[in-house]
């Protein structure tokens, strides 16, 4: 999918910190370490939407450590259906997302930045959903074990963004059967997860939710790929074998549907 917003500022509002070099001069963070001549480092801000009081905003406030989030969290991510609707908060920095090896900071445009913002926020939602699920006393032992492993691997996972517009997939995840190297890689094609023209995207036969929640769905799904029992076969001593499961996408979709019930809204 092309990025019609590339190079534009739909809000019409240009913040003081429009270029990375200005951010640096003002002592403000430079999320992607943009080069000084970066032409697309538009940082927009201000109150773009009314606080509709939904729980999403509460969730954002919960994430706040210094109160800044309250100021910038007035937009409801739940209302975001396309990248056109996204306003990246001024001075926003990713909490989780780094650039993949195949992507340089100077290649990113505004659409990338908006998508990175949504992915980063959705990753935070995913962490919270796993945590919330672990508080559920009614879980089966098997599912609880999945969540414990998921939480462990999420904490050490590397989340990366590739500007590659992958025509076949939105993201991919994996973990070593020896327990190391968990990672989730998002492609620029992640914007397709939001659906288009009111029609949801589909992931391995399961409909994703529209808009921002579609992105959360993908992260729930990829988070399932960090759970070794869903990915690998166990041997007689309880260890994991290189033997791979054929139905891994089916079980990770089930995990995705399961986690929807524990989102912080």
């Amino acid at each position: 999918m092309n990025n019609p917003l590339a190079g534009t500022d739909p809000s019409g509002y240009i913040a003081d910190c429009i270029l990375a070099i200005h951010c640096a001069e003002q002592g403000l963070p430079n999320p992607f370490k943009y080069p000084p001549n970066c032409p697309f480092c538009v940082s927009v801000g201000g109150d773009q939407s009314e606080d509709n009081g939904n729980k999403r905003n509460q969730s954002q406030s919960r994430n706040s450590e210094n109160g800044e989030t309250e100021k910038i969290g007035n937009q409801s991510l739940l209302n975001i259906k396309t990248l056109d609707d996204v306003t990246v908060p001024e001075n926003w920095e990713p909490k989780y997302l780094a650039l993949a090896d195949d992507t340089r900071a100077d290649q990113l445009d505004e659409a990338d930045r908006k998508l990175n913002y949504l992915i980063d926020e959705a990753t935070s939602e995913h962490f919270q959903a796993v945590e919330q699920a672990l508080n559920d006393k009614s879980l089966t032992e098997e599912r609880r074990a999945h969540l414990v492993e998921a939480q462990d691997n999420l904490r050490s996972a590397v989340f990366t963004y590739s500007r590659y517009d992958n025509p076949e997939r939105l993201a991919q995840g994996g973990v070593d059967f020896d327990g190391g190297n968990p990672r989730i890689k998002f492609f620029r094609s992640m914007d397709k997860a939001m659906g288009s023209n009111g029609k949801p995207a589909s992931g391995y036969g399961e409909k994703l939710r529209l808009g921002y929640e579609g992105i959360i769905d993908v992260i729930h799904h990829e988070g399932g790929h960090l759970i070794r029992p869903l990915h690998y076969v166990t041997n007689s001593q309880g260890g994991y074998s290189k033997l791979k499961r054929l139905d891994i996408e089916k079980v990770t979709n089930q995990y995705m549907l399961f986690l929807r019930n524990y989102e912080g809204r």
Binding site: V158, Q172, G173, G174, K185, I248
Partner: peptide
């Protein structure tokens, strides 16, 4: 994370192995 690995990418998931 400083660990050399090879990733098998089968078009669906990735399978890293150190």
């Amino acid at each position: 994370n400083g660990v050399r690995e090879i990733v098998l990418d089968d078009g669906i998931t990735i399978m890293p192995m150190s």
